[in-house]
Design a binder for these strands. Structure first.
Lengths: 205, 205
DNA sequence: TGTACATCAGTGAACGCGCGTTCACTGATGTAC
DNA sequence: TGTACATCAGTGAACGCGCGTTCACTGATGTAC
């Protein structure tokens, strides 16, 4: 708790972002309104305009912070898995799901809010950094595949990203599709089979 | 064009669904409004209530029709690929992406509108049928794997569904993430590698 | 240390808007005789 | 074939609501002297 009550809020900008994240998580990107975020932060709707150009800008900033956290987390997981390229790669997969689970508001703002990643240069940069961490992990691991059978690292990482995102969207949210398996298991086994397909894990492992 | 103009519309129910699909496609699930769907169909908003309980019901019906079409399409692709289990399986993968591409309104209503699949028994049944087609294809193909290494068919199909859905969401929509590869290629190569991981395709194929 | 003043974060009232939904109604259609 | 009537799909006006945004303002804060 920073200093709060009083005419001046102290740190309204961040408080608004956090209110937005909470509301997005609770009601989906549709349900989020600028007015309610302001009310949650204990402030008049008009006050929001001291810090953001409008509703969309607020979402974009939430998404940007999400990508920054996401990239940091993936980078950390990747580093921790070193020097084993395989361990590092699998750690990023687990980190992906963990991030989506722990920060649903951010995840939704990033991927489900319908916001363009090119809305601001800062947002685009954060998203690009996140992508590059995954691509780096894929590229490292690719080294072990004979060049002539090696898929481009960007394709490799796109496969993994798509699988991870699909698991999150279909099985880690309460859409009524009861997951037949825990999402974590689903992702881990899926990645395992995929890596075996690339010859990166022995067939009988 | 069925008989239209006049006090009675003729087939307002379906016209409303089609208007809804078009609007959902254009503006996302957020942008869709009952009033605008009514206007698009050339009718007063109040008229909608002769056919639907409300806004959500209209979306649910659009989603239901989507799942029916989807299940039919997958079944058709699967049958066409027979008697080769592998060909049948790969055909359903391609059919998945083709459906998402050709019927974005349906796809969004089905997977992105935030509607619960258990909202009505009809919707749940349609969704279950779609799932069962994919699971059947996976089960057939699994027969070729030695039982002790065979993953449950429901897991197998969940992997494929998640990968397909992820490719659609991340790379087949204009979110600003320019796809590094055509989504079709991405999905086909991804499924190929996965199947190789299961030992269903020879390593050098 | 105390006072005057500039800054600017947040107020509160107001706006126009389109939303989903309701209601008593109207008039086109189809059927019974 | 023509008339009376029941049905019910669609009308149009109205509602209360919360939205995003604007505006002139106010009063807390921090700085210069």
């Amino acid at each position: 708790m920073a200093k709060k009550r009083g005419y001046h809020h102290g740190n309204l900008r961040q408080a608004l972002i956090e209110a937005a994240l909470q509301l997005i998580e609770e009601k989906g990107p549709t349900g989020f309104t600028l007015s309610e975020a302001a009310k949650t932060a204990g402030v008049t709707p008009a006050a929001v305009y001291r810090h953001f150009a409008g509703r969309e800008d607020l979402i974009a900033e939430a998404a940007r912070q999400g990508f920054e956290m996401f990239a940091d987390l993936m980078q950390f997981a990747y580093d921790k898995g070193q020097p084993s390229a395989l361990a590092a790669f699998e750690a990023t997969g687990r980190a992906y799901l963990a991030f989506a689970r722990k920060n649903p508001g951010h995840y939704i703002a990033m991927f489900e809010s319908g916001i363009s990643l090119n809305r601001t240069p800062e947002l685009a940069a954060a998203a690009a950094r996140a992508r590059s961490v995954l691509e780096q992990a894929a590229a490292d691991l690719s080294q072990r595949i004979p060049p002539e059978k090696r898929p481009p690292a960007s394709m490799f990482s796109a496969h993994i990203w798509a699988l991870s995102h699909g698991v999150v969207e279909l099985y880690a949210r309460n859409t009524g599709t009861a997951s037949p398996f825990p999402p974590e298991d689903l992702l881990e086994t899926g990645i395992g089979i995929y890596l075996r397909g690339l010859g990166l894990i022995a067939p009988d492992e």
